[in-house]
Amino acid sequence: MNNYGWGLPIRASSFAGQIDFGILLIHAAMALIFVLWGVFFAYLLVRYRRRAGTPAQREEHHASSQGGFWANNAGELKSLMPDVLVMLFEIALIVFYAFPVWRSIKMSPPDPKDADVVVEVTAEQFAWDVRYPGPDGKFGRAKPELVHFSNPLGLDRTDPAAADDIFVANELHLPVGKKTLIRLRSKDVVHDFFVPEFRLKQDAVPGLEIPMWVVPTRIGHYELACAQLCGFGHSLMRGDVYVESPEDFQKWLASRAALKPAPPSASNNSGGF
């Protein structure tokens, strides 16, 4: 796949460009600051090296009785000008960039009614359990005591709302250009949902259901990786993200719905991943 390279991966979500803008802008500013200071620093190192007969020159310090605070500390205050510039840059960054973009990405997940697709992603050691609500649009009941390796979410198939739920492991299918609401959960420890191409990252915390949203903008095959240490198999905890045209997505959903769920098993309850 050529989604990745030596720089940032390709952009495949509506807000990826906004995030990249910040990353590139800040790196440009960082490079500028570093080069300017570096040149000044190198100049000082050469210009003021020790030379016979040239003693160090102390800065002028005025007696505190005259001139007032500003005049007395003019040298010191002048040297703080770069700091003031950095501060102004940061204020601008916060007010015009960080606040509004953060608000749109993390603080305003869509209402389930307004989302085109709703999907529940549950992390566990060391897999991603993905569930679509099925034709009825409702997520059915799940019980922790029903969890089995053939039923990782503990879906109660006797609940009519759960009977048509579509479950798939380590695969996330999304239609391109549609607003998707993802409900992120965890069964055991803290995991992290990370799709580099979407520039989307969010911890999955047991006991919490965290809503997040994405509008995929590019058809393709991407990677879903766990980005929070979750145990010995952490690096193996990955899944595939398929962004498809809305028609292909519907076709895929229909093909999954046609598969009858396995009957509830009465055998032992062990074996997680």
Binding site: I19, G22, I26, A29, M30, Y97, F194, L200, K201, Q228
Partner: peptide, 14 residues
């Protein structure tokens, strides 16, 4: 700087 900024940290965190 990019880590302390909320938006860019979404991608660079961890």
């Amino acid at each position: 700087l990019p880590l302390g900024l909320t938006v860019t940290d979404i991608y660079l965190h961890d």
